Simulated scan of single mutants.
Amino acid sequence: MSDTTARALRLLSLLQTHRHWTSTELGERLGITSRTVRRDIDRLRELGYRIESEPGVAGGYRLEAGNALPPLLLSDDEAVAIAIGLRIAASQRLVDGPQTTLSALAKLEQVLPPALRRRVAALAEVVPSGPGGGARVSPELLGDLALACRDHERLRFDYTSVTGEASSRRVEPHSLAPAERNWYLVCWDLDREDWRTFRVDRIERLLRTRVLAAPRELAEETVAEMVLAASSWSPQHVEADVVMDLGFEDFRGWFGHWGQGATPEGADRTRWPVGGSDWREAMYGMLYVPAGVPYRTDLAEPHRGELREAVARLLAALEAAPPEPRATEAPRPVRGGEIAG
Rank of each mutant, 00 (worst) to 15 (best):
A282V: 13
G253M: 05
V334N: 02
S277A: 14
D298W: 06
T163Q: 11
P173I: 09
M286R: 01
V111C: 03
L318V: 10
G130V: 04
M1C: 04
R35E: 04
I339H: 12
M283I: 03
E28F: 00
A58L: 08
H18T: 09
F248A: 09
G85I: 08
G292A: 14
A262R: 04
E309D: 15
V238N: 06
P98M: 00
A177R: 13
V57I: 09
H174S: 12
I88K: 07
L185G: 00
E172W: 02
L30P: 12
R304D: 08
E319K: 04
D194G: 14
A300C: 04
E338I: 09
L141S: 09
D278K: 00
T5D: 12
A219P: 02
R308Q: 12
A8T: 03
V334W: 02
R10M: 04
T22P: 04
G27M: 05
A230T: 05
T163H: 11
C149L: 09
Y49I: 07
N67S: 13
P131A: 13
W21A: 02
G266W: 03
E109T: 14
W254E: 10
P114K: 05
R93T: 14
K107R: 15
A90P: 02
Y61A: 03
L218S: 08
P294H: 06
R29S: 14
Y159F: 13
G59V: 07
W279A: 06
P55H: 05
S2A: 05
G261K: 10
P273V: 00
L11F: 04
E125Q: 14
D268E: 14
H18D: 09
W188D: 01
G31E: 00
G247N: 12
R7M: 11
